[in-house]
């Protein structure tokens, strides 16, 4: 039974620190306590625990624009976060953890704000069939965690730009993202703010457990050295990229020199193998392209003779 609520809001938008706070709170989980943590990230593609970072988002475009890629320790697909998105995290002991109950706190908060939100499948909350909240879960023998997004006024064009909603066929080991039709709360109510959503979530939780004691925490109440240590773990490029960075790309395109079926095997940003099946008459030129593509780093200066291939791949990925 829940007899204590712990409520905390992140004070910054730096994704790795916000993840560090979440993980720290998970480690503090005690029987009888429910923690609600509210946080937002600046320009971040947030990938699932077992996803391939390279095949799930346009890494180079994102980092060039000053965005972040972060890997969460829960599963599922890639989502985009910015200041227009609020994240909530419920943490409780396994014996107190109840996903249906947590969802009802969330949908109750939405109803209080005038939104007819309902659960769709096991992970999504929708309004009018449009997903505005994706949810994911982690379970250990003791502590459990349920976190989700709330799209309030996220930049739709950034979602399109940074997430691979791709016409290119990508082959990678790992969990694939599924494209969803998404909606912002602001599409239904223009004046809604993250602040109001956060307050509504807190009120909904408090009225669910009216007899529980309440503790409102600030970041300053947490052990700073531990938070910094965890922040460094989440920011570590090896953790974010993962240990399996190989993936394949396949696409077809009609070039001036012929129709080409292109297969590229990547290791991170570097092309390890290239094969072009083509009806081009100049087979020598196609073989030269294959040779130049092999070993090319797509984030560096590209040889003009293979620019067409790299550019169509980029354009199709977008």
């Amino acid at each position: 039974m829940i007899n204590k609520l712990k409520i905390i809001r992140a004070e910054g938008l730096y994704p790795y620190r916000n993840q560090a706070i979440e993980k720290y709170l998970l480690g503090c989980c005690k029987k009888g306590e429910m923690t609600l943590y509210l946080w937002a990230n600046d320009k971040t593609v947030f990938i699932g625990k077992n996803q391939n970072a390279y095949s799930e988002c346009r890494l180079s475009a994102l980092t060039a624009d000053g965005g972040y890629v972060a890997r969460r320790f829960t599963g599922g697909g890639a989502v985009y976060h910015d200041k227009g998105n609020l994240n909530f995290t419920f943490i409780a002991d396994r014996t107190d953890f109840d996903i249906a109950n947590q969802f009802s706190v969330m949908t109750g908060a939405m109803r209080a704000l005038g939104f007819e939100a309902r659960l769709n499948g096991r992970n999504d909350v929708v309004i009018d069939g449009k997903k505005f909240s994706g949810n994911a879960f982690y379970k250990s023998e003791t502590a459990c965690l349920h976190h989700g997004t709330v799209l309030i006024g996220t930049d739709y064009s950034a979602i399109e730009k940074y997430l691979n909603v791709s016409r290119v066929k990508l082959n990678a080991k790992g969990v694939k993202s599924v494209k969803s039709r998404v909606g912002n709360l602001r599409d239904y109510r223009a004046d809604i703010t993250s602040e109001q959503v956060a307050d509504a979530l807190i009120s909904a939780l408090e009225s669910r457990y009216p007899h529980a004691s309440r503790e409102y925490l600030k970041e300053g109440d947490l052990p700073e050295t531990e938070i910094q240590r965890l922040t460094a773990e989440f920011a570590d490029p090896d953790y974010v990229r993962g240990d399996d960075v190989r993936y394949g790309v396949e696409f077809e395109y009609r070039y001036e020199w012929g129709v080409a079926d292109v297969r590229l095997d990547f290791n991170g940003d570097v092309i390890e193998r290239a094969k072009i099946y083509s009806d081009a008459l100049d087979t020598g030129a196609v073989e030269l392209k294959e040779r130049l593509l092999t070993g090319a780093d797509v984030t560096k200066t590209i040889d003009p003779r293979i620019k067409d291939i790299i550019e169509t791949m980029g354009a199709l990925k977008r």
Partner: peptide, 30 residues
């Protein structure tokens, strides 16, 4: 189940330690 992170060959484990984790359509679980 959609993914499993297998333990590493050579790893020494104590009974009760986290051995590995799995991702299902519902959750990541140790």
């Amino acid at each position: 189940l959609v993914f499993i992170n297998l333990p590493e060959v050579g790893a020494e484990v104590k009974a009760g330690d986290v051995l590995c984790d799995v991702e299902s359509v519902k959750a990541v679980s140790d």
